[in-house]
Amino acid sequence: MNVKVLLFCLLPAAPVLAQGFAGLGTDAEGFAVPERGRALQFPRDHGAHPDYRIEWWYLTATLQDADGRDYGAQWTLFRSALAPGESEGWDSPQVWMGHAGLTTPDTHFSAERFARGGIGQADVAAAPFAARIDDWHMTSTAPDGADAYSALQIAARDADFGYDLRLEANGPLVLHGQDGYSVKSAAGQASYYYSQPFYSVTGTLDLPGGPVAVTGQGWLDREWSSQPLASDQTGWDWFSIVLEDGHRLMGFQLRGRQTFTAGTWITPQGQATALPDGALSFTPQGTAQVAGRDIPVRWQIDWPEQGLSLQTAPVNPQSWMDLTVSYWEGPIRVTGSHDGRGYLEMTGY
């Protein structure tokens, strides 16, 4: 193990000790905690929330080249705070971690970056919006007056891969749960969670074989919290799916003593319906040997109320983010009652 794991033990993949005090708005260490009914404000909430323990800007894109070959790209900036608040210089308690993934049908690339807050190596500015770590960035290209996330440029680069993508949103921001207050366990753990699921994407992938021009669809998740998981929750399976009829489905299950599920059904116009615990069911259909473990890479997703029955298959079963904090994340194809594409993230295996 190493020092970076110690820092990122605060990430959702591991249980957080601080519990309760939800009603008080802060936990024992002085971190703010999400409160039901607090309205999200933009562009303020596009930026960082240093009073909360963890936060991320999470973009996934399902892409195709001119020949119809499938690709997937992931750009993530995690923020983790050792103490609430921000200050200048090395005293800053903020720690940043960037992840970049690029999936082709036969190869999966991943890379990471770490940085301390306070010195300018990594930060997120709300207006004009820019999230950066080293030379990786997610920068708003939206015109004045428009929502900062309505147009973005993202780029990341490592020794053997890189990408540069431009994203245009074709729909509004979508708030999950109750106006962005997203419950994560039966015990009441929650986060603030909203998305921009309506991107169309164009750009270039840098692969060992040379640059590849691609187009596709993108999905941005924004989430922050201080106490995301219940102590018995060991990991999750999270789906973001764009159906051919224009509907979007976000759904996840948190595995623990009791499985907790939640989701959001989004119309092509951006109207969201929160799906309560138990509405969706997720059933593994087949596993693959990935990084020395059995990982369920094929799933059956059911929403009986709506007659939704989807089967998912990975573009590349070996979409393993082999990094300091490791997990499975990659593009999927969806068939069944509806066809579509999406992204799947699985942690805790």
Binding site: N2, V3, K4, L82, V95, R116
Partner: peptide, 23 residues
């Protein structure tokens, strides 16, 4: 040193330590 960007050897020196105390 800056433990997050330092080479692995440096980080190893801190492996079992109290990182928060170090920072």
């Amino acid at each position: 040193i800056e433990p997050l960007t330092a080479p692995p050897g440096t980080a190893a020196a801190l492996a079992d330590g109290d990182l928060q105390g170090f920072l």
